[in-house]
Amino acid sequence: MPDARSALDGASEAGFVKVEEMGLQGMITLRGDLAAEELQAAATAATGVDMPDRTGIRTARDGGNALAWMAPDELLVMVPYAEAEERLAQIQAALEGRHVLAVNVSDARALFRLSGGPQVREVVAKLCPVDMAPAAFGPGMFRRTRLAQVPAAFHMPDADSMVIVCFRSVAHYVYKLLCDAAATDSEVRYHV
């Protein structure tokens, strides 16, 4: 089997912030009762991070592992791409017999990173109907929303960068949108 490739093979473009496609990321959708101790333990065991709060994300120090709150009954488990199947089996074994659903969705998604300063907020604010003021959105929060015409989610690993998750099928559209919104000299300077 040929090697797995990410949607845009790491394409990048520099505007007033840098837009880059992040490459392969292992992702497991875990659905079930998020309040159940077994489910929390399984998610924590697979990633090494604690359960996030509602609409939050917890990221491991090295950045490869994370747990993101997607919905009242849905968790996004982020793991290194090469380990996704192994971690999935681990979760499924831990929750056998429980009313849960765990699926490897790594190849169904695309990730983008915006970096280069607090202006990354401006790029997202141009595309999403979300209050991007520093007081309203910051690191540790995970927001699912609409990015122009497609569903997407984003979070800030730190105050100067942004990670955007979308479906792989719309990766090229999202990349073009982000590049356009980040075009040189197009800062709005509303939030920053």
């Binding site: 509602r54 609409t55 919905a71 009242p72 929303t145």
Partner: peptide, 11 residues
């Protein structure tokens, strides 16, 4: 009321 997010109509 499910996720606590306040959003604009188009969301």
């Amino acid at each position: 009321p499910n996720c606590g997010v306040t959003g604009e109509e188009s969301e």
